[in-house]
Design a protein around this nucleic acid. Structure first.
Lengths: 135, 135
DNA sequence: AAAACTGTAACATTTTTTATTACTTTTAAA
DNA sequence: TTTAAAAGTAATAAAAAATGTTACAGTTTT
């Protein structure tokens, strides 16, 4: 999965930020986004791996934030849910005998690296707290 | 089609820039990227619509640049091949009774608009000539 | 013990992207 | 003046990616 992860994860975290003391169930969270609870749990698994949230199993279980909303940036979320933003590559092994084909992907890669650096910089200036305050 | 268009179009234009006086056939171009000629012609149709290239039908026909490589920026290409860069949305109609669900897409949209503005700014500083010179 | 959860793998479905075919039109050259 | 080599384009097919579902094991509270 690539697309969707960032938006789902940010949605989850925004919800958690509004109830910092409660364990929210994947069913409750899924209800807010009209999504299957299993997909929510998959993204929560990723958040746990990154020590952003903790979960409690069993009855009355659920998930809550581990870190302060002011200590989580959108760049953190970007990095843990998205590889890189790209505008596409030449995917069918371009002709190695053509000087353009031979180098196109390398040059695209360089370009996209720049783009991603700028996006990272921008997103690192926005905390989950900032984002959550918009609601 | 969304993905692929930018990379394919940039590849086409880079090739054309290396032979500014020749009409290159879609078959020749497709050969450089190991792609079906029909897909190449589709992207060329888009370039023609934007007055970047012209084509000649019939035997010995093909496509060539209409504009100077120093007058075409990567932002021009971005704008004509890509809607917007996003990190995804909540696509299943999030719950309108949830304050987060109700507003999530609007807030994501705002965020992505910023991202796209910055990408546009960056790409507008790179001409086709600049890019082509890397080969 | 029952109920309400999480965790996760396997599988199914849907959507998007990419590729192909088929056929029309145009032009240059033999 | 016929043939070959090209573009243009619509319709369809195939492949890949994303998303959704089921099923079931494990955990914790009541």
């Amino acid at each position: 999965m690539i697309s969707g992860k960032f938006a789902i994860t940010l949605h989850i975290l925004t919800l958690l930020s509004k109830f910092p003391d409660d364990y929210l169930s994947s069913d409750f969270i899924a209800g807010s986004m009209n999504l299957h609870p299993v997909l929510v749990r998959k993204e929560i698994a990723n958040l746990k791996k990154n020590n952003i949230v903790e979960s409690k199993e069993g009855k009355n279980g659920g998930t809550r934030l581990l870190k302060s909303t002011s200590k989580i940036t959108l760049d953190d979320i970007f990095k843990m849910t998205f590889d890189t933003v790209t505008l596409g590559f030449s995917k069918n092994k371009p002709n190695p005998d053509c000087p353009i084909g031979r180098q196109i992907n390398e040059n695209l890669e360089n370009l996209y690296e720049d783009i991603n650096q700028r996006i990272g910089l921008q997103l690192s200036g926005i905390t989950l707290e900032d984002f959550s305050n918009k609601f």
